[in-house]
Every structure is written in C-alpha cells, then in structure tokens.
C-alpha cells in the first residue's frame, strides 16, 4: 500500500506537471485511476507479493523438503500437492485481488493529495472524475490480472520450494530464484495480456 501511495503521489506530480502545459491537468484523475486499476495496481501488488509471500512459500516449503517433512507427509498417504500447494494457491489467488484494490485506493489517495495541493483539484472533484473515468471492464481486467498473477506467483514459489536440491544453501538459492522468476514472469505475462487485450479490443 505504501509503495502504491508513493507511486500515486509521484505519478500525479509528473503527469500533472506535463498535462498542465496543455491545460489538461484535470485529466490527472483519469490517467491515474485507469493506469492503476488496469495495470499498476495488480502489477505492483504482484511484485510486492512475489517478494513477500512468494519468497515465504519457497523458503517454508524448501525447509520442509530439506528436513524430509514433505516426504513424511507423502509417506503418511497425504498428497503434498493437495495438502501443501493447493491451500497456498487458493490463498494467494484470493488475496491478490483484495490487495490490488487496496493498492489502487492507496495510489488514488496519494495522487488526490498531490492534485489538491499542486493542481488545485479538490478531493471531491478528483474522486468524481475517477468514478466517471472508470468503466466496469477496467475493474474486471484489473481483478482478473491480480488473481492470475497470484496463481502464477504461488505456482512458481511452490515449485521452487518443492524441487530444492541441497540443504540450507539450496533453500537460499531457490528463494532468490523464486522472487526473480516470479517478478519477471508477472511482468512478462502482463505485457502479453496487454498485447492480447489490445488486439481483441482493437
């Protein structure tokens, strides 16, 4: 939320500064709300969650793998995928859209503050503009992306954790790999998603 808040501030400042030259500073709420709802909200949340929850998943499952806990679960007749992976995927895929919404709200608050102080746009007018600019497809796209990114991060993190080779060193390496691969994959899929969506919607 803090990342989004500060990025909202910065984006409002920079876009406002440029748009002011054309007398179009009143477009700041539109730009910020669409950018964050469709794109930056899910993306930033994905990056933060890959570093926070993805890393935790990999480290936790990796440690369990190294200390034979995963094998012990398997030896009891409990499927590790059902017991260890599925709940984590459900959790992160459900959490991502919620956090993404909070991230967008934080960014809008940040940009509203700048718009108010630097662009003389009162918060009431700012949020009216936001509500007018956003359409349902923007919100659905953002939520869908967030959920999909959550699944991707969860899958990568669990896979990295359960396929660890080596001891503590392996856990450290897998955790780093998990974060790097998750962030790269999320950004890659986001680009792919945007290309496809642009093609579809013309």
């Amino acid at each position: 939320m803090m990342v989004s808040f500060f990025l909202g501030l910065t984006m409002a400042l920079l876009t406002g500064d440029q748009l002011e030259k054309f007398g179009a500073e009143r477009l700041v709420p539109t730009v910020i709300s669409i950018a964050f709802t469709r794109e930056l909200g899910p993306l930033l949340t994905g990056i933060v969650l890959a570093a926070r929850i993805g890393a935790a998943y990999t480290a936790e499952l990796g440690t369990m793998q190294v200390s034979e806990e995963v094998e012990a679960i398997e030896a009891m007749g409990i499927g590790p995928l059902r017991f260890l992976v599925a709940p984590r995927l459900v959790a992160i895929a459900s959490l991502m859209p919620c956090l993404s919404v909070l991230s967008v709200v934080a960014a809008l608050i940040g940009s509203a503050l700048i718009s108010w102080s630097a662009l003389n746009l009162v918060p009431g007018a700012y949020f009216d503009a936001v509500l007018t600019s956003l359409i349902v497809s923007d919100i659905v796209t953002g939520l869908f992306k967030a959920m999909f990114f959550g699944l991707l991060i969860g899958l990568i993190a669990c896979y990295q954790g359960l396929t660890i080779i080596g001891g503590a060193e392996g856990v450290g390496k897998a955790t780093t790999d998990s974060v790097v691969i998750s962030i790269t994959t999320v950004i890659g899929f986001d680009t792919l998603f945007n290309v496809i969506l642009t093609k579809i919607t013309g």
Partner: peptide, 12 residues
C-alpha cells in the same frame, strides 16, 4: 504403514 525418520520429520 508408519514411518519414523532419522530426523523425526515432524511438521515444524
């Protein structure tokens, strides 16, 4: 079948 591991393998 029960299995007792060398390092116990209790879920920490």
């Amino acid at each position: 079948v029960g299995m007792v591991y060398q390092d116990s393998a209790l879920i920490s």
